[in-house]
Every structure is written in C-alpha cells, then in structure tokens.
Computed example of a mutant assay.
Amino acid sequence: MKSNGKAIVSHDPIVKKPNGKDAVSSTVLDQPTGKNAVSSAKVHKVMPAVSSAVPIQPSGKTAVSSVKVDKVRSSAKVDKVLFFRDVSFGIQEGELRFRLIHLWEARNVLTKTLIGLEMLLIDEQGSVIQGFIPSARIDTYLPHMKAGSVYRLNKCFGSNSKVMYRVAEPRVVISFTSNSVLSDLEDSRVNFPDDRFRFHSYKEFEAACDLKGDLYDYVGHLKLVNGQTLNASVVLDEEEIASTRRLLLHVQTHDGPVMKLYLWDQAAADFCAKFKLHGSTPRVILVTTVNPKRFGGALALASMSSSRVFLDFDVQPTRDYVTWLDSNLDVANRVDAKVVT
C-alpha cells in the first residue's frame, strides 16, 4: 500500500501467548554484559471494522485510502484528537497526531529474536511518549514510516511501560494493534517540535548508577577518542571498531569530572559515519538515552539500542554547547583527560 495520502490498516492476527491470551511485549536491549527487560500488557481483541465498500487488492489485503476513512468518520462519529497527556491504559478511541522522532529494533539479548520496534514520538505540545509495534506488524507499518515525518494514528492501545530503561516519562506506551490505522498527516498547520532531550548532570548520573532506571541524555565535549587526543590527525580504526562493536570516548561537561562514554553497536557506527563526514575534528557530542554504570569503581556511561549520536552543529543543544566551549576554553582544558574519576 502506498503511503502518500493512504491509511495503513493492519489485519494480521494479534500475537498469542501459550495460554491463549493476547499480548504485546516491549523491551530495550542492554549491552552485551547486561540483561534485557521485557514487559507485557494484555490486549483486548477487537474485530476489525471495515466497510464492505472497501475494495480488496489481488494480494487479499484491504486497501483503505484516507478519503474512504474520512467518509466513514463523517457518517459516524469524528474521532477526537488526543494529546499524549490524555492517553490512558486500554483502547484509545481518539486520534493521535505526532512526529516520529526515532525508531529502533527491540531484540532479546540472549536469543537475538526480534520482539518488535520501539519508537519515540512527540506531539504538538512537546510531550514525548514511547510507541511499540509488535514484530508481527512491522511489515505492515515500517515501510510507510520515516523518522521526522508527521502521522495520525487511530485505534491504538495504551499498555504499561516497562519498569527498567524507560526512554520517556509517561507510564503508558502507545501500542499498534490489529485495528490500528496509520496515515500521513498532510497539510497540517500545526508546528510539531523536531525533538526533545532530557539531560542529566554528572551528579544525577552518579545517583542513578547501576539502578537500571530511566535513560537520560548526555551532552559535553570530547577529550579522547579511543585514546587519541583531539587534533587534525585523529584516525578511527573502523575495522577494529566493527570487530569489537565498541568505541571508547573520554568526555567532560563544562568543568565537571571526566567520564568514559562507551558507544556500542549502532551508536559506534553512527559516530564513525558522522566523524568521517565532519569537515574537522568534532569537539562536542550529544548521546541520547545512556545507561550509567560503574566500571572499575569509576562512573561511566554506555549507549543503548535506543541511543542517537549528535556532533557539534547537528542540533540546538550541541550548537549551544559549542558557543559555551568557544568562550570557556581555559575551563574546558583545565582537567587532564587521563585522570578519570
């Protein structure tokens, strides 16, 4: 089904547990040495409501355009627009409108089995919430979704968020069900924010160390990149990074303590790609949803599967930090990067 002006409707069956109950699962992956946390919520099965006038494609799937959906709504009850603050547990009768900030795979750490897709969504009020698409419905929705685009979603389900490694504040997760209808939000006069960050200071990361709680964002300046000081001759050994699936950075926020920041898997690959495209050696880094851990008695930060990497002038917080750094080079250079607390 094409996504331009079309509504995407899932008609695959709800995933069943062995005991016959419907379930939606969600997880965030820890690092290779960690464990995964999987939370599930019951889904009340609702039979899809599709007009008999809707044509059936040769593939057997139902194609419902946004025009036909609007006709159905006009003859019945127009869905009320809900903000994320209004989302509750259970079936959502209203329409959600949001920008897709980011999406990533959720896999079982031990078996590597794909559990689903997790998403970070933001509405017009700037509220951020986590979304989830079960693995059985990924092929239905993923081809029509792109980070940065704006969508409307009808007939979703509010399920419990996981206890560990949450990436957003709400206790509810927006889950796509077999009855969900996703379509592009075209010609919207509403200005949806591009992103929203949640920063923690060194003290806050230290207080949350090893608690496996909510994941927050980090911004600061680079001191060492895989043991190399920042200069024009910094070279990244991409083969070694790909082999170890890891990149080690020493970072510092303002005049605070220097910390180790481990970038794993996709985050390490993203850093390498941005580093190569950068005109000069980058100085400022922002990594989202990092996990504070203690290695060898010292506080360190580790990226997660949900993490994103930004450098220098990529986003407003990094641009603001570059401005601060240019005005406070004496403060930034005061601490030796090799002395890590």
Rank of each mutant, 00 (worst) to 15 (best):
residue 69 V to N: 03
residue 102 H to K: 04
residue 60 G to C: 05
residue 74 S to I: 13
residue 48 P to K: 03
residue 50 V to E: 08
residue 115 I to Q: 08
residue 50 V to H: 06
residue 105 E to V: 11
residue 91 I to E: 15
residue 55 P to R: 10
residue 107 R to L: 06
residue 71 K to P: 01
residue 70 D to A: 14
residue 81 V to L: 13
residue 56 I to M: 13
residue 65 S to H: 03
residue 36 N to Q: 10
residue 42 K to H: 02
residue 93 E to H: 15
residue 71 K to W: 09
residue 79 D to M: 09
residue 81 V to T: 11
residue 34 G to D: 00
residue 104 W to A: 02
residue 50 V to K: 01
residue 54 V to K: 00
residue 54 V to A: 14
residue 39 S to C: 08
residue 82 L to P: 04
residue 42 K to N: 14
residue 56 I to L: 15
residue 96 L to H: 03
residue 85 R to H: 14
residue 37 A to Y: 14
residue 72 V to I: 12
residue 84 F to H: 10
residue 55 P to V: 02
residue 58 P to T: 04
residue 40 S to H: 13
residue 54 V to L: 08
residue 32 P to Y: 05
residue 52 S to M: 12
residue 41 A to F: 09
residue 29 L to G: 14
residue 87 V to C: 03
residue 97 R to F: 03
residue 100 L to A: 00
residue 30 D to I: 02
residue 27 T to M: 15
residue 57 Q to K: 15
residue 63 A to D: 11
residue 49 A to L: 10
residue 64 V to T: 05
residue 107 R to N: 11
residue 73 R to D: 02
residue 64 V to C: 05
residue 84 F to Q: 00
residue 52 S to G: 02
residue 45 K to G: 08
residue 69 V to T: 08
residue 50 V to G: 08
residue 72 V to M: 06
residue 61 K to N: 12
residue 110 L to G: 11
residue 63 A to T: 12
residue 61 K to S: 12
residue 91 I to S: 14
residue 96 L to G: 11
residue 91 I to D: 15
